[in-house]
């Protein structure tokens, strides 16, 4: 029983990526060639990132990343490709995810309210 491996994100085809060389293409060319970037940098010079990975999930295990590719394309101030870097999953570091969250208010139903509230009849207007 083989675990199902799922392709994630936007993996540019190697032969197309090879055509993206510094000093030649503008942002429009890159978009035409590789499609929209998966994400862009939030601050500073707008670097384009093409992020893709392969994840798998088997039996009761949590989802795992098998491999990952991050392609970073930075542009100079004239909007021409300045630098193309590719990183795989080894570049990533294992960071423990903090559990603290910023509080958000909002009404919560207790068990009894729900059990008795909607036995059989779910009052439509509450759901509108």
């Amino acid at each position: 029983c083989s675990a199902d491996i799922a392709p994630r994100g936007n993996e540019p085809a190697p032969e197309l990526l090879a055509q993206v060389k510094p000093g030649e293409l503008t942002r429009g060319d890159v978009r035409a060639l590789l499609g929209s970037p998966s994400t862009t940098s939030a601050f500073g010079d707008e670097t384009w990132y093409y992020i893709s990975s392969q994840t798998t999930q088997w039996a009761f295990n949590a989802t795992e990343e098998l491999q990952r590719q991050v392609v970073a394309i930075s542009f100079d101030d004239r909007g021409i490709v300045k630098d193309v870097r590719t990183m795989d999953e080894t570049a990533g570091r294992d960071v423990e995810i903090v559990d603290r969250t910023t509080p958000t208010p909002g009404r919560e139903e207790t068990i009894i309210q729900q059990l008795l509230g909607n036995l059989g009849r779910f009052n439509k207007d509450a759901a509108k």
Partner: peptide
């Protein structure tokens, strides 16, 4: 080349 997926559900009484 991007699209948003919209999921509209209508809940039923699950009691």
């Amino acid at each position: 080349d991007q699209t948003d997926i919209i999921v509209d559900v209508e809940e039923r009484a699950t009691g």
